[in-house]
Design a protein around this nucleic acid. Sequence first.
DNA 1: ACGATTTAAATCGCACACGATTAAATCTAG
DNA 2: CTAGATTTAATCGTGTGCGATTTAAATCGT
Lengths: 148, 148
Amino acid sequence: MSAKFPELNLDKQLCFSLYAASRQVTRLYQPLLKQHDLTYPQYIVLLILWQNDGLMVKDIGQKSQLKSNTLTPLLKRLEQNDLVTRKRAKEDERQCYIYLTDKGKALENECACIPMEMLGQTDMSMDKLFQLKTLLDEFLQLHENHGG
Amino acid sequence: MSAKFPELNLDKQLCFSLYAASRQVTRLYQPLLKQHDLTYPQYIVLLILWQNDGLMVKDIGQKSQLKSNTLTPLLKRLEQNDLVTRKRAKEDERQCYIYLTDKGKALENECACIPMEMLGQTDMSMDKLFQLKTLLDEFLQLHENHGG
DNA sequence: ACGATTTAAATCGCACACGATTAAATCTAG
DNA sequence: CTAGATTTAATCGTGTGCGATTTAAATCGT
């Protein structure tokens, strides 16, 4: 009924809580994002571009912690949906700059309510949500230079 | 340089911290799991089975928050690697019971050190890691009945 | 100046995740 | 007793994630 090694018990593992909570949040966002024809990772990339338009794929990768093997197809889908354009830099043809289209910029207004609506979907207190975010960011900062 | 709507700023979004931290943890586990030919979700499923062998796909789904569309192929891969067997229940042929093989049981011993090794890879204090897990579990509990 | 190295993005292959549907077995209401 | 509803897995299609490799462009070292 229970693992031979207590340290392997699922309930005791932070890794599983993180994995499950992350997917749960994605599921909470999905109905809202679907109204704008967005997936969750596409929304993350748009958040980055709304904050700073005209980034290279590499920059988006650094901010999202995603590599080109994930970003290239994702950005092509955003381009197909007319939310961004992809332009090669003339001074360095290796670099691919990503710009929001008018439609992409307009989408920011439509998405402005999403954070508030998401807050409304959880019964967790603002205080605890803030604590959670602080701890996660601390963890990320401790590890952000280890893998790319 | 900055989003029109401050509430859309990436650094302010809990959702992104969670998404990034979860993937970071997966990346930390990967080198350890690769030694045993396991992926991270496969490890999660094995943690469940080590705790309670002989579950139905449905039970594993409830504990992992994964559905059969993810679990069926994952379990088939575990079966191919001779870590589990899949048996239809005679009394109800719809049900598929999953049992650990000897190899699957033996793997528990080999994985016993993984939690400790993972702890050694982070500089975050035990206290903060515990706080983090507590908050995540609280969040999960508040939402676990909303989607499956 | 020019081959070797480095860099940026794209490509490839595999394994998730998950919404939606399907298929088969079981249950249930009349 | 049986038609319809329910349950359980499996299947299908799309979109990530990511290690590894490839391609092309720029830079470096001699």
